[in-house]
Design a protein around this nucleic acid. Structure first.
Lengths: 199, 199
DNA sequence: GCATAAATTGAGCACTGTTCAATAAAAGAA
DNA sequence: TTCTTTTATTGAACAGTGCTCAATTTATGC
């Protein structure tokens, strides 16, 4: 039913985002339904299109929120001052993905169309995760290797991402690997050591 | 129209697979349609279900065929006796994914349901790709490190996979990385060197 | 209080995967 | 050969999907 006075545009946007995020966590990307989200917030699917413009932008907004949570998750673990910050970072990457498998996978299930790339504001928020890694990588690299930090950090994120993907989608299990986290951590440390890192 | 005499069961299965593979290459996982494949082979969608049992098994069959092609692709590049076989392997992984982006991504877009895992025959064919990598990794490792080869190889596949994913989905471009292949190759070599490899 | 602007709806379109009775075709038995 | 049984194939139906848009309802500015 029409409830225009119930929520301002911003409130409605937030409402849809919260419920959409919940729905994504419950059923995953493949079974996600804009109609179902609309039903849950008490509006009709056309309203979602009115607010978000397209299905893609709704999904993008949900996934960007997942990035926010993920960055926060990492920062929390680092804030507890773990003895091995690099290991904590890798473990944090894994544990978030495992704890929120549907949300995490949705990030990579969704592909933005070529002609309509992700909005700047969202791209920036997503980039914060990498920023955290760059900072921690820089912290263990020697002075002369500091300029390498950004590229190396991105590459190490990719390394961990690959291991995390195989852990969650069953590829590792199928091949008999039982400790993907240990493997990922080992690879990261080898590359950091090669760059002269000390920990 | 009914064309029962036109194709035997095996022929029909092959026909659907070929056309399904072509369709997947053209439109990708998200826009793949069993009905469209049926139309193209001149049968009706029910027949696909009769032959493959379910949508999931059809996709699994298509993706397994992609694995076959991919393994073949790598072996071809190694057969030309490149000076750096490890680099050739990483480059082959990347070039296949880039040359057949829709097919390659479909492998990871598709998630087998928990209660119905991938059939043994398909799992074995998919494993051949890793076998190639295990063989090449073993070839550069010293005698005493040979037992490490299988686990290390799987882990290096994951490393390359992560880089390849970020290269294709635009994550690297968004973060300013312009040479994902070089990054992946560097990471692989660092880990092999750490295990005592010589090349 | 009224005209204008904006948000919300509901119905419709063209699809999708999936199921299943009815039908057509092939194989086997007499 | 003819008749029966088994098997393959169809077509229609079901419950969904994303997406669009005229019509309606609601809020705002004059």
């Amino acid at each position: 039913m029409g409830r225009r006075s119930d929520h301002s545009r911003k409130e409605l946007e937030a409402l849809i985002l919260v419920e959409g995020h919940r729905h994504m966590a419950e059923v995953g990307f493949a079974r996600f339904s804009a109609r179902e989200v609309a039903k849950r917030v008490g509006y009709v699917v056309g309203t979602l299109y009115n607010v978000f413009g397209s299905y893609d932008r709704l999904i993008a907004a949900i996934n960007t929120q997942t990035f926010d949570l993920w960055t926060e998750w990492l920062e929390e673990r680092l804030a507890s001052d773990p003895p091995d910050r690099i290991a904590a970072l890798v473990a944090g990457y894994f544990s978030f993905a495992q704890a929120h498998a549907n949300l995490w996978m949705a990030i990579y299930d969704h592909r933005m169309v070529e002609d309509m790339p992700i909005p700047d504001e969202m791209a920036e928020r997503r980039g914060m995760l990498t920023e955290v890694v760059v900072r921690e990588v820089a912290a263990v690299l020697p002075q002369e290797a500091q300029p390498l930090a950004p590229r190396l950090a991105r590459s190490l994120v990719a390394t961990v991402h690959g291991h995390c993907t195989f852990a969650l989608n069953g590829s590792f299990a199928l091949l008999g690997e039982t400790d993907p986290l240990a493997m990922a951590t080992a690879r990261v440390k080898e590359s950091l050591a090669a760059a002269g890192a000390r920990f």
